[in-house]
Design a protein around this nucleic acid. Structure first.
Length: 613
RNA sequence: GCGCCCGUGGCUCAAUGGAUAGAGCAUCGGACUUCGGAUCCGACGGUUGGGGGUUCGAGUCCCUCCGGGCGCGCCA
């Protein structure tokens, strides 16, 4: 288990000094985006408000009322209290602080400098001690309904390589891998929706001691099958899972496998490169791939470590570091990478005194290769137990002439499994663990994915198998999916009556007057911003929480009004407008669920008694 | 010992340094002859682990202590 680096979020760099720069530069980036593409059709309401305020600031600067060189991040937020309006901004407080003036004066000045497009705001108010609050006119909200599923291409120009799971082919995936897998897959989808060019990659770590131990384990089990061993010579650190016996049985059923097991392990080739390790890799990688497929996890590329050794890329990278003085040979003949005092770390071995390169050396060559392929960002999702590996990875990138900041490691915290309140032991070598495959079969792909995505990655996660299974009907994912199915049902009913779902027309806002309808319109308008924000922050869980919000409002709208203001009524104008609205809800639910890799069913039934015989 | 992550209602979890910390589950009390009752409404429930500090403003940043998890290999 310790050999894998499966698991999420920006926490890896959050605590460093670099993180502050990253935060403020993203604000700058937002301002650039808005000024360079002010007319972007998919711009979010937040972006529009932000632009209005940014321009107000620029106007004050042009008038000499604010220092021209002053740059303040314009942070638009949604106020917690409804009476404050749709958006709020504490810019007057920030301006007051920066200019050492009274926040009330700053607020009044800013308000006077605001030149919003006609009809955008219903009200702009100043609230002590220094907030500007904006209430957007209903008509402006309704204008967003034309394209609620259009996401601004925030990530345009970014080429991202997202590496995740990358578990050794030494056994089936466990639930911890599943968390990283689901996060990575969802993040790829979310970032692609926001315009990033994302490629996903699985690094197949098929070289080294772990693989050698796998081969030896297989060899021993094979000998047991053949009656050549009673198992007493099984290595202490070998892989003890039943799956090894299964693979061994298949192995010795082949002539080559039988022959390999009849000879001493030392005689069949390199310890990590022989008939046993090759067979294990092929079979176990197949198992891993089948599980990932069952979980809906897709990879664009499988990058095999052995190719780095075979091509000479690894040796060349080591030589380059030696030549440039970033590495040296010690008295024993080992080659070490110089940490140069960075992060208080010791120098790290790249090539052992025996001449065999370490995992670290291969990983350096791999990341060098990634960077050379022209990606602007390298995102790795690792299990939290690998956090100590980050400084040396960054240092090695820097030594090779790459910007270490392009590497972003998202750490996923451990998943602890419980069943009936008791911890389930996990450990690949002991063989006692619940596989991801089993959990997927027991709980279902949609529920597993949604559960994983319904929390931040940098918090530990207690996954109670009994709870996940027994409460499956109360599972949030079904609540969201049910909303989608419910709209589908309404649309089917309309279709049965010969009523088509219309496109948007301006008259619709005059009949969508229920408070719940206005709430839904605002919810829908928020979708694009949620997606771009989730992509920027590498936190797909925001999408899951948004969907919960949206569907809650929809269920409330439906239930509260189902006897008085039905979607489908005798009023053809209202019917058309409401069909449009609920169809938009359905689209956003479908789109949002797709971003998480969760299905959006047209119908859901508890019982099968109405199924055709 | 050193380093990283986490600590938020009974439980599981949210919350860009902003305004009176929010959901779900559970509990209790209600609604509706269903375009799908897998729904909805309400109530109860908090000194955000403790203590200092920075700030106009801290769940969020800094220090310290406590508690939980994980690292600190010529393993991967």
């Amino acid at each position: 288990m310790s050999g894998d680096r499966e698991n999420t979020t920006g926490s890896a760099w959050r605590g460093t000094t670099r993180s502050r720069r990253a935060t403020s530069s993203s604000c700058t980036y937002d301002r650039v985006r808005i000024t360079t593409a002010p007319a972007r059709s998919g711009g979010t309401m937040e972006a529009i408000v932000e632009r209005v305020l940014t321009q107000a600031m620029e106007r004050l600067q042009a008038a000499g009322k604010v220092p021209a060189e002053l740059r303040l991040p314009v942070v638009i937020e949604r106020p917690k209290r409804e009476e404050f309006g749709d958006f709020g901004c504490a810019l007057p407080l920030a301006l007051a602080k920066a200019t050492r003036r009274n926040p009330v004066e700053c607020g009044k000045e800013l308000m006077a400098a605001i030149q919003a497009p006609e009809g955008l705001f219903e009200a702009v108010t100043f609230a002590p001690p220094g907030y500007l609050n904006f209430k957007v006119a209903p008509a402006a909200w309704f204008q967003r309904m034309k394209d609620v599923t259009t996401i601004p291409a925030d990530g345009a120009g970014e080429r991202v390589l997202l590496e995740f799971v990358s578990a050794n082919p030494t056994g089936p995936l466990h639930v911890g891998h599943g968390r990283g897998a689901v996060l990575g897959d969802a993040l790829a989808r979310v970032m692609r929706a926001a315009g990033y060019a994302v490629e996903t990659e699985y690094y197949v770590n098929d070289v080294g001691n772990q693989m050698a131990m796998m081969g030896l384990s297989l060899h021993c089990r094979g000998r047991e099958v053949l009656g050549l061993s009673d198992g007493s010579d099984f290595p202490e650190k070998g892989y003890r899972g039943q799956y090894v016996r299964d693979v061994a049985a298949e192995f010795v059923a082949t002539p080559a496998g039988k022959a390999a097991c009849e000879q001493p392990y030392e005689s069949i080739g390199a310890r990590d490169d022989n008939a046993c390790t090759h067979f294990a890799e092929e079979r176990l990688l197949g198992v891993i791939q089948a599980t990932l497929k069952a979980g809906g996890i897709h990879f664009d590329r499988w990058y095999v470590e052995r190719t780095l050794h075979a091509s000479g890329a690894l040796a060349a990278t080591v030589q380059r570091l030696l030549d440039q003085g970033h590495a040296y040979r010690d008295e024993a003949g080992a080659i070490l990478f110089r940490m140069e005092g960075k992060a208080d770390e010791d120098d790290r071995v790249m090539v052992r005194a025996s001449g065999v390169p370490t995992y670290f050396a291969a990983d350096i060559a791999y990341h060098d290769d990634k960077a050379r392929r022209g990606f602007t960002r390298l995102i790795n999702i690792w299990g939290a137990d690998h956090h100590g590996y980050i400084p040396r990875m960054k240092a090695s990138l820097e030594a090779l002439g790459h910007d270490p900041a392009c590497l972003q490691v998202l750490l996923v915290q451990m998943v602890t499994l419980t069943r009936g309140g008791e911890a389930v032991p996990m450990g690949k070598r002991s063989g006692e663990f619940v596989t991801l495959q089993e959990v997927l079969e027991e709980v279902g792909q949609d529920a597993v994915r949604f559960l994983f995505l319904l929390r931040r990655a940098d918090a530990q996660f207690e996954f109670d198998l009994d709870l996940a299974k027994s409460q499956s009907m109360d599972n949030p994912v079904y609540y969201v999916q049910y909303g989608h199915a419910r709209v589908a049902s309404i649309l089917r009913k309309a279709a049965g009556l010969g009523i088509a779902v219309p496109g948007w027309t301006d008259g619709m806002q005059d009949v969508l007057t229920l408070p719940e309808e206005m709430s839904l319109v605002k919810d829908l308008a928020r979708f694009a911003g949620v997606v771009t924000s989730a992509a920027r922050r590498c936190e797909p869980h925001h999408v899951a929480f948004y969907l919960m919000d949206l569907v809650k409002d929809f269920h409330g709208y439906y239930t509260r009004n189902k006897h008085t203001e039905k979607v489908i009524s005798d009023d053809t104008v209202k019917t058309a407008a409401r069909l449009f609205l609920v169809s938009r809800v359905q689209s956003v639910l479908a789109e949002g669920l797709a971003l998480l890799g969760v299905s959006a069913p047209e119908e859901m039934r508890l019982t099968a008694d109405d199924e055709p015989a």
